[in-house]
């Protein structure tokens, strides 16, 4: 494979292959930054991959009090799923179990889309008849009495069908510490990109997968081509100097957001250089036949 070199980091001439998804965004606020984050973190917990979690979700950006609808600190949370029905189900369950329950929380829509997803319109029944509907300024809210006052929740939020899931970078390094340093640099850079999330723990996944497996019923199994301990026994993608690979998976509100996030990640990792971080950057794809969106690394270089 042809490789470009940027600041001593080899860039594979390959592409990340991504898929169209359904997505929504909400703003969760709390009495302070800690509790706004706590509600958002709980809601986006166990939401790393649609394969096993039903959705992929994470905090897109933290918002200062001046930028939220109720003047309290907040987080913009994005949720991605493969179908509208699944997205609605995940949104409703996570909102009900994780945000409604979090002290002092409130929840607002933050996406205008082609269709509406229920927020407060679904949760209002928790009010057992004491819920209050309020419409003003072109928006509809539900107020549900709870033990610390009221849970304020906008009735609906928007759904976008323009979302893209599965943008990725594979960071290959000589040691685990270098791979992790590269991954952390990429995550820090991508966190600044609006409209893009990294759903895996801390934004990083170490168990990249391939489609299918030898066992019946396995829809995904280990990406043996990038597993360093298998490099002698399978058709490996890894050279003799690589001992650890980590992946950054990116979901974006639009294709442009994914591209911007990958560009930011590439920039951060190449800037870090091979001595401290990754010596090679690649990307995961399925030969280009499955996903509609292709992000060629060479087009996204800093």
């Amino acid at each position: 494979m042809q490789r470009l070199m940027v600041n001593g980091v080899a860039i594979d001439d390959t592409f990340a292959e991504a898929f169209g998804m359904r997505a929504t965004a909400i703003i969760i606020t709390g009495p302070n930054r800690k509790w706004a984050r706590q509600a958002a973190i709980s809601m986006t917990g166990f939401a790393t991959s649609v394969i096993g979690c039903g959705c992929e979700a994470a905090i897109d950006v933290e918002l200062p009090a001046s930028q939220t609808p109720d003047g309290r600190p907040g987080c913009r949370v994005m949720i991605f799923a493969v179908s509208t029905d699944e997205l609605q189900k995940q949104l409703q369950n996570r909102l009900g179990q994780c945000v409604l329950t979090s002290p002092g929380s409130a929840c607002f829509a933050d996406l205008k889309g082609t269709a509406d997803l229920k927020l407060g319109s679904a949760l209002r029944y928790f009010g057992d008849g004491w819920q209050v509907s309020k419409k003003f300024g072109g928006r509809h809210y539900w107020r549900v009495p709870v033990m610390d006052g009221e849970f304020l929740c906008e009735a609906t939020t928007g759904l976008t069908k323009e979302a893209v899931g599965g943008g990725n970078l594979l960071l290959l390094a000589e040691s685990n510490a270098q791979a992790l340093a590269a991954a952390e640099a990429a995550v820090a850079a991508i966190e600044k990109v609006p409209g893009a999330i990294m759903p895996f723990p801390g934004g990083v996944v170490r168990s990249g997968s391939k489609v299918g497996g030898k066992y019946k019923g396995m829809t995904a199994s280990t990406n043996d081509a990038f597993a360093p301990t298998l490099r002698g026994v399978v058709k490996s993608e890894l050279g003799p100097d690589i001992n650890a690979a980590l992946e950054i998976v990116i979901d974006g509100q639009t294709s442009d957001a994914v591209a911007a996030a990958m560009k930011a990640g590439l920039g951060a990792v190449t800037k870090l250089g091979p001595a401290k971080g990754a010596s090679r950057i690649s990307a995961g794809n399925y030969g280009g036949k499955l996903g509609k969106f292709h992000y060629h690394l060479k087009d996204l270089l800093p």
């Binding site: 003047g71 309290r72 309020k134 610390d148 006052g149 009221e150 304020l152």
Partner: peptide, 11 residues
């Protein structure tokens, strides 16, 4: 109690 509704309404 503290009220987010009051904050949103005020704004």
């Amino acid at each position: 109690p503290d009220s987010s509704f009051a904050a949103v309404m005020d704004r």
